[in-house]
């Protein structure tokens, strides 16, 4: 009787199996990788830089605005715009969110908030206990 399962077959099967299991572990791990929330500053639709929230610092954005990072929170401390909406905006931190200065076309934005991609922590506001995805007005 012909031998159905040769030694080489077993080796092949086992190695493919090992590869599959290895890849599975690697991908599971990758998707669970803890990401560090960081601050991005975008000026005039272009990325100016990405900053760690763990390092207290003062960032000058052009001539017009100054942004502050302290104790894991970031906010706009100064702006020469007439409305001062950005300066009055609540500080943002690891939980996500953004601060916008429309007159000077600046966005401060938390990226990679939360533990995995796809899990949104971009909470804008709550209304009667409901998380709002966006605000019309």
């Amino acid at each position: 009787m012909e031998k159905l399962l040769r030694k080489s077959d077993i080796v092949l099967i086992l190695s493919i199996l090992a590869l599959a299991v290895g890849m599975l572990i690697a991908f599971t791990h990758a998707s669970r990788e803890i990401r560090t929330p960081r601050l991005q500053i975008i000026v005039n639709n272009e990325l100016m830089g990405t900053y760690s929230l763990e390092e207290d610092q003062t960032i000058r954005v052009g001539e017009s605005n100054i942004c502050e990072i302290k104790g894991g929170q970031a906010w706009m401390s100064q702006a020469d715009c007439p409305d001062q909406i950005c300066v009055r905006s609540r500080p943002i931190g690891a939980g996500g969110g953004s601060i916008v200065c429309l007159p000077n076309r600046i966005v401060m934005k938390i990226v990679e908030a939360g533990e995995t991609a796809g899990e949104s922590t971009d909470i804008t506001e709550l209304f009667e206990g409901e998380v709002l995805d966006s605000i019309a007005g």
Binding site: S120, E130, D133, S134, I135, A136, G137
Partner: peptide
């Protein structure tokens, strides 16, 4: 992405 309706606040 979680299959629920988008909830939109009106200012």
């Amino acid at each position: 992405e979680n299959g629920k309706n988008w909830t939109i606040g009106i200012q």
